[in-house]
Structure formats: structure tokens, C-alpha cells
């Protein structure tokens, strides 16, 4: 349930959540749906909230005012910086890997 597609950095729940929240604040269920749409990864509720808890602890995302049972989260500037660094690393890795594949 947690990671249906092949595992790898592109299915890391924390990166997926940060990427989802980079678009704007969302609550848990909306994050799940968004991640399923843009990454094709279906996060289980347990995986989602384990990652959210850690991201809040790290101060990479923060909860906003709750409306009913739903509470939206937004990405912080620290979280945005962390996401940028991780995505840059992934981009370097993918361009390097693709170059090598083409050379084979």
C-alpha cells in the first residue's frame, strides 16, 4: 500500500509530500490524491502520517488552522530549501545516469 511502484528516490513519501505542498497548502487526503495523480504513488494513511509527523518535527511543513476534521499543511521556507536541494541532486543523478545509458 505504501509504495506500489518500484522503490527509489522518486517514491520517497517525504519528497512527494513536499513536492505536493510546493503547489500550495493541502490537507492529508488532498495530498494523497495529488501524489497519486502526479507521481502514480498511492501513499497509505500510515505512511502519509508517519511522513507528515516527521516533516512537522523537522519544521519543513507546518499545520494551518483546522476546518472540521481536516487540517491543511503548508511548506515552510526551510522545507522549500530542502526540497530544492533534493531535487537538484536527483536531477544531477538522472542526467548523469541517462548520459551513461546513452553511451552504452
Amino acid at each position: 500500500m505504501a509504495r506500489k511502484t518500484a522503490s527509489g528516490p522518486a517514491t520517497d513519501p517525504e519528497l512527494l509530500i513536499l513536492s505536493s505542498l510546493a503547489e500550495g497548502p493541502k490537507h492529508g487526503y488532498a495530498i494523497m490524491q495529488d501524489v497519486a495523480t502526479f507521481a502514480g504513488v498511492e501513499l497509505g494513511p500510515g505512511t502519509l502520517y508517519t511522513a507528515i509527523t516527521r516533516l512537522v518535527d523537522e519544521n519543513w511543513i507546518e499545520p494551518m488552522e483546522a476546518s472540521g476534521r481536516q487540517r491543511p499543511y503548508r511548506i515552510t521556507s526551510t522545507g522549500l530549501g530542502h526540497l530544492r536541494i533534493q531535487l537538484e541532486k536527483m536531477r544531477r543523478l538522472s542526467s548523469f545516469g541517462l548520459k551513461r545509458i546513452r553511451a552504452v
Partner: peptide
């Protein structure tokens, strides 16, 4: 929030295992 999400989901063995592990 978790209760809200669980209410939307069908309870399967995989989901139960996911929640228990979490």
C-alpha cells in the same frame, strides 16, 4: 485527520498492516 482519511478508505489487510506499522 487520520480518522477522516480512514473513513474514505476501504479496509484491506494491506491498509491495516500499513496503519499498524505506522
Amino acid at each position: 485527520e487520520m480518522a477522516g482519511i480512514l473513513a474514505h478508505k476501504r479496509l484491506t489487510p494491506a491498509l491495516v498492516a500499513n496503519v499498524v506499522a505506522s
